[in-house]
Design a protein around this nucleic acid. Structure first.
Lengths: 341, 341
DNA sequence: ACTTTTGTTCAAAGCGCTTTGAATTTATGC
DNA sequence: GCATAAATTCAAAGCGCTTTGAACAAAAGT
């Protein structure tokens, strides 16, 4: 059923029916009721393409799907999407995921923009000088960045305080008396990785404790890598008495490595992991419970969707940046260093 | 830049330019070249909405985002999406994720269909008599189901052999001499959960081993629930000497529970988990390595996208069902039952 | 040389909606 | 009771593309 038919059924013009449906004020109350009822009765719903063509707005936001096994598409993705969905539902907006072809992200973005399939874009996992962000600013296309770059031109973004999180965690460990702290972080180049390393180094610097370059690892997030790298780290003499893990998955591997070396968690070796808060993986429930730097990626998703709506409502992007603090949740996996007896 | 402008630039009609761009044969070779070059030069790309309105096909497939913390939106989601993306990229198709409003999935589906935003839909996590599937069949809207139902009317689906997987795993354990095997499975009602229970019971029946109803657990997939339920199960006398876990996350919790009770994994208590194959969580790498029923959800995504394309190409849905076998990968977490000394 | 065929291009209609500007009806002021 | 304002409704244009049916030019057939 199309608008024209519905209008004929009702003996009204398309104009009036359209207006009634879209909640314009200049429609008689009784007429509106009648139209709405008829719409329900006939199961009418506007053809989205026609509507968009006429209105110039799409009602969808875009996000790219990298087709390799990118850092950007891990277990946190579903949580982030859930968060987005929660907010987008309010405005009946869709999320359009467009695949990247031949690993050429920039052209994927350009195609997405020029084909007018989305009103705005969400960019995730940026590098410090992210060329996608630069391009979008240049193209003046609305977007919100999850993360941060060093690019000066104003744009909307939301990031967590990765540097602060790792500074806090590292400081805590140093203050407990640890002298050798390792870090298994995400891939080099990504802002969040760099910021975490920064925080880690700052804490060392403040206290005059040197950083052993072998103790700084940048890798993908997986339990396997956590395991392998922790094993390597623990084979050094002296070995680290504390390990920071960039993700819960990494931490699982580190847990195993520590245990397989016969060290007690939270005693001979402490662990602090970053936790994006997964409903299916609970840090407080582990044995020993895991000390974490915690920040809900789901909430971040919700907030980013919110910012996106505001960008589209014309709010100047200058006003739209947020840095979310990260909580350090002390649990049993971290404690003062204990020399093995 | 729009088609009209591009046509003017070239001194051609819109018709010819459109045809050249879309690869129609009745365009002079030289003209086509000229048009293509100009399109690149001016960065022209058709307005997707106008194109769709005219052509009647969208170039996107839909999937719903449940806004609660549904089983259907867990850590496997990103893998599934990655798989989809891989195939969809070939045909430059998008994936449209539409949020469910007020938990009313049926109307969400109806809205998605009647608004003509997608050519087809992917349905996941069905129940045995899934009303969404029934509705889509009724509406004659193209879709592919990830999973299975008992609905007789023909429709396209792909499922893994959940019953076979759990029958195989259970049989293996029974043959090793286990008499008390528990199962921590997904939520009741979902086909995959029911099928797994079926396989589990069949294996028992074949060997004349009774099933203790307290040993059959249906719950959400999370490490916390795995931990809690396994603790409960292990407190019974006699307690299960083997536990089947419906997901890797559940298995992590079960691992901990077994360990915290002081039992040795693969000795006093065996574990077999279902593994969807995550790049960030490796069963063979655990300590002890985990025996799993393995089936890549990523590959399933790719295949489903493929089936979707075929459905849209008019292939009769009668031809489009597949049941994928599930491999039982024997590792260290399962072995003959050992009575604690 | 003239009709047919083939190859190439075009003008205009149509996809289903929104929105402008005008027309019509109803309410209000004096 | 009549002019004016306010409230409703409408016809038609336009969003940017594809596609139909016709037009034209060049090549082929007789």
């Amino acid at each position: 059923m199309k608008l024209k038919e519905l209008a004929e059924q009702l003996g009204l013009s398309q104009t009036t029916v359209s207006r009634a449906l879209n909640g314009y004020p200049e429609v008689n109350r009784a007429t509106r009721e009648r139209v709405n009822q008829a719409a329900v009765k006939f199961g009418y719903s506007a053809n989205a393409n026609a509507r968009r063509l006429a209105i110039g707005r799409v009602g969808a936001i875009g996000i790219l799907m990298p087709n390799d096994k990118s850092e950007r598409f891990g277990p946190h993705t579903s949580e982030f999407f859930s968060g987005l969905a929660e907010r987008l539902a309010q405005d009946e907006m869709d999320l359009l995921m467009s695949p990247v072809i031949n690993n050429d992200e920039i052209s994927a973005y350009k195609r997405l923009i020029s084909s007018k399939r989305v009103d705005a874009i969400i960019v995730t996992g940026p590098t410090l000088t992210d060329e996608r962000v630069a391009m979008l600013i240049d193209a003046k296309f609305p977007f919100v960045l999850h993360g941060r770059t060093n690019i000066g031109a104003p744009h909307a973004w939301l990031d967590i305080d990765n540097a602060g999180a790792f500074r806090q965690a590292t400081s805590h460990l140093l203050d407990l008396g640890h002298k050798h702290i390792a870090m298994i972080d995400g891939l080099k180049g990504h802002t969040f990785s760099e910021h975490r390393e920064l925080g880690y180094r700052e804490a060392h610097l403040e206290r005059g404790v040197p950083v052993d370059p072998r103790f700084v690892v940048h890798e993908r997030f997986s339990d396997e890598i956590g395991f392998r790298e922790a094993q390597r780290l623990l084979s050094y003499t002296p070995h680290p008495t504390a390990i920071l893990a960039g993700s819960m998955m990494t931490a699982l591997g580190v847990f195993r490595a520590v245990r397989s070396k016969g060290y007690q968690l939270g005693k001979e070796v402490s662990i602090i992991a970053h936790d994006d808060v997964f409903p299916y993986l609970n840090a407080s429930n582990m044995v020993p419970s895991m000390t974490t730097t915690r920040s809900s990626i789901r909430s971040a998703g919700t907030r980013i969707a919110d910012m996106l709506v505001r960008v589209l409502d014309g709010e100047p992007v200058e006003n739209l940046h947020e840095v979310w603090p990260v909580e350090l949740i002390l649990r049993q996996s971290s404690g003062p260093p204990v020399t093995p007896s």
